[in-house]
Design a protein around this nucleic acid. Structure first.
Lengths: 139, 139
DNA sequence: CCCGCCCGTCAACCTCTGTGTAGGATGACG
DNA sequence: CGTCATCCTACACAGAGGTTGACGGGCGGG
């Protein structure tokens, strides 16, 4: 992996962290050092062997416990290890909610929730009418 | 866990997702349904039993593989399960959905999102008027 | 009424994550 | 050169993560 490419695999991302996050005197952390620091600082145990396996791509599917501990140690959000294409895909789903809010729908919905049955029915009916008016083709 | 508190444990968060993210006809997804959907859609396998174990807090330390699959299915970023700040933010979105459904206004909100600017403004205004009418005391 | 269907629950089981332990390389110090 | 310290590598194994299969209960339809 070249330095200026964005890391793709979990191993790459972890190695990038070792590469950039160093201790005083710019010496890279060793696997053992990180393992000890984590096992001491957090209340999570991790072995230097396992860190090595993760860095070399021999293990690729850690539990959230270990991943969070590593992220905490290096001072990055856990999402650093997970964000990529996956996140992009998910973000599209969230667009619906975001879009609704941006369109001022939140306002409508929240207040509607506090309305009486009768008023709500009236609103519903009105929305349905408008919707039909604007979407003549759909069912 | 009451509906309006932000969930703390992984089990709570997962249950919250089941509670809010539903399929058409507002029926809650069953564990089996989710397991099948994930095993089919993503290239990750997961068993309905395991989902149950996570929901009931019997297992609390899943691997990133399963966690990402679950997050993807429910349309939230993986960070929802890991980062508490992220959880709170997203939870507010989920609350909106939950509140709307409880009040029977899912219909309104979803369709409003498809309306033109003008119609939406009209609805908003109408809701505000009704709301003021029914809640004279509040600001 | 009973049959089929799907659900949540449970316990036994199997796979793979994560550990213990040790070998070989390298460098510092005497 | 010998010793010590510390690193990365390797591999077998313990145990936690995840699955399988079965049981009992609720519900709708013939």
């Amino acid at each position: 992996m070249s330095v200026d490419e964005t890391p793709r695999t979990l191993a790459d991302k972890l190695n990038r962290l070792f590469q950039t996050v160093r201790r005083q005197g710019d010496a890279e952390y060793s696997n053992v050092a990180v393992a000890e620091a984590i096992s001491k600082g957090e209340d999570v145990q991790i072995s230097h062997t396992y860190i090595w396996q993760l860095r070399t791509g021999r293990r690729v599917n850690p539990t959230i416990m270990h991943l969070t501990a590593l992220a905490a140690f290096f001072g990055v959000p856990v999402a650093y290890f997970l964000d990529d294409a996956e996140t992009a895909k998910i973000d599209k789903d969230l667009e619906l909610l975001a879009g609704m809010r941006k369109a001022g729908v939140t306002h409508i919905a929240l207040r509607s929730a506090e309305l009486t049955q009768g008023s709500r029915a009236a609103i519903t009916e009105m929305v349905n009418q408008l919707w039909k008016l604007e979407n003549p083709s759909d069912e």
